[in-house]
Design a protein around this nucleic acid. Structure first.
Lengths: 243, 243
DNA sequence: CGATCGCTTGATCGCTATCAAATCGTGTGG
DNA sequence: CCACACGATTTGATAGCGATCAAGCGATCG
């Protein structure tokens, strides 16, 4: 697949993202080295390794995770189109978490060592990067609140609503639902639950008739009810920067 | 108490922070509007409210939290001297979390609406802000990993080691221990445990003789053993930016 | 067609929550 | 100085949510 020009970026075209100036766009185009494609289950970043690369997820879903020596794994957050990957690395470039593709993904690849040019020449983009970082932290905060304080059912309801809204906000799916590439193990790892209990809770929640989840497709029938059940009221999603 | 000049900042003097140029220091000095002092339990930021202010915690401890409508509260992370407060607010300035002082705190206060001057004129400081944001996310990641995957005892051991190391890294305490202003309710809220269970686990952990915790003072006797118990191996703390 | 992976279900265990109450230290007012 | 209130800590008893163990089912794939 050949690389698309940033000016013709289908993601940027589809709205929900902030505007950039022509000069900024030109810089981004130059900053981006190439595009890259990976399949489901492939590693974008490996836990504990160094990477001199940064990415923007242009298409597809992925997730960020950390694990313990004995194999327990915690999914920290899910990455959807427009999300930026790799900021958390310390200067050394070593990332304490892994990032793995959930679906086929399309990545824009940037060289970390030219990040400085961005800060020096394009304060607007620099600001955007900080914003993206702070925004991702906000999502992790929300997960932590859920995992620390909510019951299993509440957590699941929250996750479904959360991902549904985010997917819709980047233009995926429609009234009939969105693609939903997580399996139950992913849900369990994201919510700090066992696989078995996740299955049982999911089943019990399904019996309420507030959502449909089948064949990789998620449909939310009663958003309000689900949100009430989870005590989860997401802030409205604003236009966000895209680099 | 009169304001200190940034050039004479006792925090910056004490090492562990990255260097800034004279020009940057001068900007920070101008950017900072005033200092402010709050007592334990006082709110630095109120959950859900808007704030046009940003802060650097110059002295004292605080914590960031979110709560659910029914009162359950999750502490997201603890703030120690040098930490920057308020980045997570969306452009509107609305913060989804609260920040509360644990000890008497001394804050440097910055006007959010001049943040743009920093990005335009001082790319190095802009970079630092992104770094601080990403670094805080890293800490929240770690908490999420713990709350999602670790047992009660492991979580407590982790928290003690984590806070001890951070406190030491900003120059607090000595071999004989550090001040430790959390009560058991704070620990419970940070780790997603009930107060009663926190107490019992703390007690059981204390019986192992790996630490001493009394009268607001924490002493770690066997760091290695505690870390092994928690499966927690913190990355070495690097020099960090201070704004 | 056997193998593998993800989903489902039942039985049992145990960690942690919840309920209840006692203890202790501290500050306050009589 | 004592009585009292209040917050933080501690302890015991009981309940329950979610983990763990074990097994079966269904679909996809080489």
């Amino acid at each position: 697949m050949s690389d698309t020009s940033c000016a013709a970026c289908p993601l940027r075209a589809q709205g929900g993202f902030t505007q950039v100036s022509d000069a900024e766009l030109a810089f981004i185009e130059k900053f981006r080295r190439r595009e890259s494609t990976l399949g489901p289950g492939e590693a974008i970043l490996r836990e504990g390794e160094s990477s001199s690369l940064l990415f923007t997820l242009r298409a597809g879903w992925a997730f960020r995770f950390r694990s313990l020596p004995d194999g327990r794994r915690q999914i920290l957050n899910f990455l959807l189109p427009g999300d930026f990957i790799g900021l958390q690395a310390e200067l050394s470039g070593q990332v304490p978490h892994g990032v793995e593709a959930l679906t086929p993904v399309r990545l824009c690849v940037f060289p970390r060592d030219e990040l400085w040019d961005l800060y020096r020449g394009f304060p607007g983009l620099a600001y955007d990067l900080t914003w993206l970082s702070a925004h991702e932290e906000l999502i992790v905060d929300e997960n932590l609140l859920g995992v620390g304080q909510r019951s299993a059912m509440e957590r699941i309801a929250m996750l479904l609503v959360h991902l549904y809204k985010r997917a819709r906000s980047v233009g995926e799916g429609d009234e009939s639902g969105v693609n939903f590439p997580l399996n139950q193990q992913h849900i369990a790892d994201a919510l700090g639950l066992s696989l078995v209990h996740t299955n049982k809770s999911l089943r019990r929640l399904h019996a309420y008739g507030l959502h449909e989840l089948s064949a990789n497709r998620l449909r939310i029938l009663k958003v309000e009810a689900l949100q009430r059940l989870a005590d989860y009221y997401a802030l409205p999603l604003r236009a966000r920067p895209l680099i």
